[in-house]
Design a protein around this nucleic acid. Sequence first.
DNA 1: TCGAGAATTGTTTTT
DNA 2: CAATTCTCGA
Length: 803
Amino acid sequence: MTDILSGLNEKQREAVQYTEGPLLLLAGAGSGKTRVLTHRIAYILERQLCEPWQILAITFTNKAAGEMRERVDRLIPGQGQDVFVSTFHSMCVRMLRRDIDRIGYQRDFSIYDTDDQRTLMRGILKDLKMDPKQYRERGVLAVISDAKNRMIDADLYEQNASDFFERSVAKLYKEYEARLKKNNALDFDDLLLKTVDLFKEEPDVLSSWQNRFYYICVDEYQDTNMVQFELVRLLSAKYKNLCVVGDDDQSIYKFRGADITNILDFEKCFPGAKVIKLEQNYRSTKNILRVANEVISHNEGRKDKTLWTENPEGELPTFTEYATAGEEAEQVVKQAMNAPFALREQAILYRTNAQSRLFEEKCIRESVPYVIVGGVNFYQRKEIKDILSYLRIVANGVDDLACQRVVNVPKRGIGDTTMERVAQFAGQNGISIYDALCTALTIPEVNKGTAAKIAGFVDVIETLRETLKAHDDGCGLKELIESVRDNTGYAEEMKKEGPVEYETRMQNIEELISKAVDFEENYTPEDDADSMSLLASFLEDVSLVADIDRTNDDDDVLTMMTLHAAKGLEFDRVFLCGMEEGLFPSQASINSQDPKGEIEEERRLCYVGMTRAKKVLTMTSAGERMINGETRSARPSRFIDEIPSDAAVISRRRRSAASWDDNDAFNDGELFSRRDTYSCRSDRREYGTDRGSRRYEGFGDSAGFGYYQTSNSFEGSGYGSLDHTSARSEKKAQSAMKGFVKGSAIEKQKPDYGVGDRVNHTKFGEGTVTAMEERPKDWQVTVEFDDWGQKVLMAGFARLEKC
DNA sequence: TCGAGAATTGTTTTT
DNA sequence: CAATTCTCGA
């Protein structure tokens, strides 16, 4: 007992011991909430308030689930493994696997990922002859997903459809559902939704789970959506021992339905709920925390709390604006390389996955070992999806999508036209594609030659089924995958793509095999899921793996990932990169219907990023970067503006105040939104080759900019207080700072030319200055150009050169 | 049926 | 820019 409660502060201890009844734990970043959760579970176990398997703990990732199990196990040896720790999605799969047949699905259902969903929707649009320009599958699916997250089914959606578009979407929604059902498949949202359906339609199923779980904990509660709320509500209804942990300031998944009111209104929904706030931060330095607090304080409607720490001051966070994204990446990688921290203790965080490319490039160049979390998910890679599709057909014969995906992979001479006919035949006879293929010879429209090829494919599948059956004692995944690789001609097909691709693909398949072996070894048939095959569980498991789950912390490598992926992690040093208006906060959030709300979400994301840092926070931006093949320029993020000047070392590139204002207009909508609202392609056509930065004349070229720095001097920054390596870094840091001059935030300079002088402009060429007028933030210059006539320019913006 | 080259189109963020 | 779709010739 003393063990479990020792080392906890008063609040934490209170939370650990408050086991009965609803509890809302408002846990700020780095306040030790995982610690509280694990100790709480251990406390319950030690007190023998219930059996391990009667505790349900829901985490955000599978990795977190594993870690929690481990940590509990360390506190109460031998019992941690039996606690039901899981993500919402995995939990639902387990529950559905047991009982989904009671609501009209088969228990060997497939799980469709985003790609599968899109393929399915594309087919629907085609069959219903809807204009794919008008109904883009991505958009339609987003609407459907949104509806599902709010527990609006197709019928209800139809009833509420108020305009033509919505009625069309309703039709698509219905068809989409029908096809999922026909394929015996569920999408991600369904996993949650169907579980709720199951609970509502089969009360005894619900009560069996209700009876089982005496204690329920939900981590990252601020990111739960309505369906998840409903699940939690239902499951906890009997014993009401529900503990939710979250931080409204870290709610960053609104886009996928997370509803912040779940946490804000917890006390209303669960009367008598106890609220405990954890406000002491154990992770970051005072200086990092101050910056994070300052930024997040710009949000309205938060739960009142102030994070504080007893940690040392630490050094001031820095912000540096580089000229280009390339330079940003290079400097960041070099700094990481020379910092007095192990690579694994540092992370590069960014808003979008696309930003990783440059960092990756620089890491390769500098030979810095790195790992990118996210981007293209392992299980979405072509070769993996292909192989899994084979396995899906083996497991679930009615999965048409899987069938269509690999029927001609490797090339068997079964083309689109043939498959079109087969699909039609299948539809007419109400059978699955695979069943249709099995009887290909009887399909009149399919000619004999192709039918023979089809028979070859069917043969492959049947052989695989044999392989599986031959190992009914539960060892066969490895053989199965190897069989797909080696006996279908798949390996040969890959060779054609070139040796490099071949190698990486083979490696990926190897990785899949070891995953499979691993899975098999740890596989314990569910107490109640008797006949459910090992294969089906493997496939279900595999589709729920997030990329973060696959990272191992053993290697000393530099980690790069999106801010979203960084949630829940911590590093000694964090690089927060790409802090530019239009990127972070994203242009979409600025242009959205609800800019205020969306920018607040971006700000929370920023807060999450900053609070990942334990000792050093380094923020950067680029004056220009390539986006969609166009060089675009941007001013530093508004979040940088929100940092008080004495709280960080802020180095912006020198720009006149006037150009800032223009730049604001540029970034805050006008020009970009036009590109978004209307076709940006028409722009391209109209302007021909005059693309990108040249179109926004005056922004693209960075020549002529200097640096200046606001706030205090460099004293106290750098790595002086750390160790020897630090001296080196300090030097590096200083030399990187070369060219920076001290100055105030906004400083207008009188140009070095005057009325009557000859000047040169990058676009307009030479001309004579005819007038100069001082403006509040800049000098306005009138020039009579030789070739272009009179122009009125802002000096800080036009970069005129005296000649 | 299939491949190569052209054209088009797109970015948040993810279980 | 890069990923995906389209188009056309064999």
